[in-house]
């Protein structure tokens, strides 16, 4: 499996320049402006990893990988781990930069604010991963793009509808007792959705023909 993680990381090495450039832009915008784009880099890193599916599919890698020892299972595991490592790595970098930028701006570091921003970024990126990867494994990258567009559009439309026409304040009140466990629940949901997504992808890959 480590070999397959290394292969995925080798495939995205040409994107390191882009990542470096984004870090510079983020730093400059952070120092001279007010806009917080710390979420951008981890999201782009997920998109970069998704691009590796295109290369794999175009070059018939998935059929070849089955000829490796435990190839089916390891290829899925490697994809998830490589993506999560990338998300964590880029989130760590942007968090460090956020500390630095805040210190330059105010002379102090708003740990709590940065922590919640990091949590939101991790949740968002893992949500994209958890949603997209099983769809990509099932339908292939080309069809998955359309599917994802429909799903994301559907979620946004549903959210807008609910926000506009439904009064959900009762839900917030009834769940207020969970406030103290917010972080724990959030992290648990992230782990759970990633794990369920991984298991679904693994199951799809185990039965897939090439």
């Amino acid at each position: 499996m480590i070999g397959l993680i290394k292969k995925d990381l080798a495939m995205i090495k040409s994107n390191w320049k882009l990542v470096g450039m984004l870090l510079v832009i983020y730093t400059v915008m952070g120092i001279f402006g007010e806009i917080d784009i710390s979420f951008l880099l981890p999201f782009i890193s997920v998109m970069i990893m998704i691009s590796t599916f295109s290369y794999d599919s175009y070059n018939h890698w998935d059929a070849y990988v089955v000829s490796f020892p435990h190839g089916r299972e390891n290829s899925v595991r490697a994809k998830y781990i490589a993506t999560i490592l990338l998300i964590l790595g880029t989130s760590f970098l942007t968090t460090l930069l956020s500390f630095m930028i805040s210190y330059i701006h105010t002379g102090m570091i708003p740990y709590e604010q940065i922590f919640y921003s990091l949590l939101g970024t991790l949740f968002g990126t893992l949500f994209v991963l958890s949603l997209m990867y099983p769809i990509i494994y099932k339908f292939g990258i080309e069809k998955a793009r359309i599917g994802i567009f429909i799903i994301v559009f559907g979620i946004v439309a549903l959210g807008s509808f609910m926000a506009q026409y439904l009064d959900l304040s009762f839900l917030a009140k009834s769940l207020s007792f969970l406030e103290n466990y917010f972080v724990l629940i959030f992290i648990s949901i992230m782990i759970l959705m990633s794990y369920v997504s991984y298991k679904i992808s693994e199951r799809i890959m185990r039965k897939k023909e090439f």
Binding site: K7, M11, T52, Y55, Y58, N59, H60, W61, Y64
Partner: peptide, 12 residues
Amino acid sequence: VVLDEMFFPEIL
């Protein structure tokens, strides 16, 4: 194994 179609991602 060598398969009939090319299988290495070409950016490697």
